[in-house]
């Protein structure tokens, strides 16, 4: 890279831009009541929200892997009519306001929804359940995994798959023993991104699954509600989520932070 000095105005605006992100983070760290942190974290409500958040976000990531990897494979490898449209639709949740996603999920899986009415007949109800949380998080987070894995599949050297086929490997063996290991970095990055997004999910969750402590109240919901009743507790929880995000960022640094 060619280095140069920034002209004054660009430098000033860039500094303001950076401060815009850094000052709130400092605020969070400075204003967190460190003395009460342990107590705030150890409260049963917080622990419940933390446990639920972890369980739901990990389940959502698992679901996204099971459904998203095959979807990414199809996008990367198969040319079918309407591919562009379908791909655009499944990418939409990345830019869609999550609350709209929640409403759409209600209209599909709610008691009187398109599929929900059938599910109700079968005795299955998804809205306002923990399963509903997983569904809402998967809806919002899976596109991150699909796009990352698809990019990995597109850039991998497919001739390794040819080599495996000449050795007598079936399609399934090629997929599990050659394709997946070769795209492992993309798979890992996609899963981490997806998990981080699921962990922070708020809008779709509260719309589709509601806010019941112990059942659907995840960390972001708890943080928001604590702001009214126990601001210090919400600061502590926010810090926890911030730390998680930092760990994710450091874990994926090779992908995003480059050599700078």
């Amino acid at each position: 890279m060619r280095r140069e000095r920034a002209p004054l105005w660009i430098g000033v605006l860039a500094a303001i831009g950076a401060a815009f992100f850094i000052v709130p983070l400092i605020g969070l760290v400075v204003r967190t009541p460190w003395g009460n942190a342990a107590r705030a974290l150890a409260s049963p409500d917080t622990l419940e929200a933390l446990r639920l958040s972890l369980a739901a976000s990990l389940s959502a990531t698992a679901l996204a892997l099971v459904l998203g990897v095959p979807l990414a494979w199809v996008y990367a490898r198969v040319d079918f009519p309407g591919r562009t449209v379908v791909r655009a639709l499944t990418t939409l949740p990345m830019v869609l306001p999550p609350v709209v996603g929640g409403i759409a999920l209600l209209l599909a899986f709610g008691r009187s929804g398109l599929l929900g009415s059938w599910l109700a007949v079968a005795g299955v109800s998804l809205p306002f359940t923990t399963a509903g949380v997983v569904l809402a998080e998967t809806f919002v987070a899976m596109p991150f995994l699909v796009l990352t894995v698809e990019a990995g599949l597109r850039t991998m050297d497919r001739r390794y798959e040819d080599a495996a086929r000449t050795l007598g490997a079936s399609r399934w063996t090629v997929f599990t023993r050659v394709t997946l290991p070769l795209i492992a970095p993309s798979l890992f990055a996609g899963a981490v991104l997806c998990w981080a997004r699921a962990l922070g999910e708020f809008g779709a969750t509260i719309t589709f699954a509601g806010n019941f402590p112990g059942v659907t109240q995840t960390m972001p919901l708890a943080v928001y509600l604590l702001l009214e009743t126990n601001p210090e507790g919400s600061f502590v929880l926010s810090l926890v989520l911030l730390l998680v995000s930092l760990v994710v960022l450091v874990g994926l640094r090779h992908r995003w932070l480059g050599s700078a």
Partner: peptide, 9 residues
């Protein structure tokens, strides 16, 4: 298909 041809490559 390739995997059924018994051809080393």
């Amino acid at each position: 298909p390739t995997e059924g041809r018994s051809m080393g490559f």
